[in-house]
Design a protein around this nucleic acid. Structure first.
Lengths: 228, 228
DNA sequence: GAATAAAAAATTGTATACAAAAATGCATGA
DNA sequence: TCATGCATTTTTGTATACAATTTTTTATTC
């Protein structure tokens, strides 16, 4: 047994890695989930996926396990893999959960709004939200909102919030939430977000958190009403 | 040659499914991480792990990918797997991040403290914290605190908070946090938690959140001071 | 002796073979 | 008609072989 635990202060290698087939398949499946090629609950047969991407089953299985660890795929022993399905209750819980995460992002980011370059990034992204709203494009709207929070979480400076909010399953579940907040609430939605956005720009972290929190409360109320 | 730790401590088996070797290896690695057999940054060579558990490399690789998806293991293409290492900054970010999660748990759980059976579960767990404190047992203390929050998050009724806080990587990172809050802060730590606990029992969710939040702020301050 | 290049070993990545389990289909009998 | 049991097919789980890559060792030169 050659057990050598050399604790070289190995500096974390920057992403100069050659992507493996596993990474390729993971990305392909994520992409499929995001673009609706795979729907929630859909079964993923390893051999079929392998054939589709011209690889063997080994990297596909590894990709499925990775995605299962993430929470995008559900894996049952001897039964195979399927895209995870979230019940209405689970989606509500998820919204409550991500709210907590985004509140942190909003709070930290707001207190950094004096930095003009950060500020303009936020402003630009909000224009994309407005644009999607003007065009009544649901998919763009949801994506723009998601990216808006991505940016806030990046600005926050907390690597964990940023990292987590970027993870595919978060984005996937966020996408599912959109189904629960139908179109006839859009007008209120954008009004809320205009207020949140203005408060964030003002640099008043405390108020921004309150604005954002009450928006989520409003969403939760409507979700429950619409799905009862 | 190496001593194999028999995992008779069989975890709960929800479905009737026969656990696969992947599940077995995942559990074994998690167990190893929790009990210090694997340290952070340590490399995991697939062939060695396979030999250790008398399985082939295939399920080991799948297990490593699953754990990579979870965030316990870091996987670099063509370079292999190692137990994820968190820098001091990352740990601080992580604490801020989990704070947000636990605040939600504390808030929701507190408002349910009129239910006597729930209440007694919380009280009993707090006694274990006090016990570990009295015995000055660091490992028990951290574990008891972790379990205390597990219970609160369970009681919260939000399936996501509960699910999330139970995930191995959360527990692993929480364990790492313990290194940053050394023994000489214990007395203040338990004083803070007594206050938090009492406020939770009072049923005043708003105050409980404030108590908990200011405790975390205190921890963060000490972390930064101790590690500068 | 240190730096460099070539060779060897170790390790990872991928494909495939086969066994085990589950799903499917079909015939039979009430 | 419908349930039941059995054979077939599909799919998953595991082991292994081999190719590609990285790491280590050795040899060579200055």
């Amino acid at each position: 047994m050659t057990e050598k635990s050399e604790d070289k202060q190995e500096n974390e290698t920057p992403p100069q890695t050659t992507a493996s087939l596993v990474d390729f398949v993971v990305d392909a499946i994520i992409d499929g989930v995001m673009h609706g090629r795979y729907v929630q609950g859909q079964r993923l047969i390893a051999a079929d996926v392998a054939e589709e991407y011209n690889v063997s089953r080994a990297p596909v299985r590894e990709a499925l396990h990775m995605l299962a660890g993430e929470g995008v795929v559900e894996l049952i022993a001897n039964k195979g893999a399927r895209i995870r399905r979230l019940s209405v209750d689970e989606r509500i819980d998820f919204l409550e959960f991500t709210e907590a995460m985004c509140v942190l992002g909003v709070r930290l980011a707001t207190s950094k709004m004096r930095d003009l370059s950060l500020r303009s990034t936020v402003v630009e992204q909000f224009e994309k939200i407005e644009d999607a709203y003007a065009r009544r494009n649901a998919s763009d709207f949801v994506n723009a909102l998601y990216t808006y929070h991505i940016i806030l979480n990046e600005i926050s400076g907390n690597g964990f919030v940023e990292f987590f909010y970027r993870r595919p399953y978060i984005r996937f579940y966020t996408l599912l939430l959109a189904e629960l907040v139908p179109g006839n609430h859009w007008d209120q939605y954008i009004l809320n977000y205009r207020l949140i956005h203005e408060t964030i720009l003002s640099g008043d972290a405390h108020s921004a958190v309150i604005m954002f929190t009450s928006h989520i409360r409003w969403v939760l109320r409507n979700m429950r009403i619409d799905n009862e």
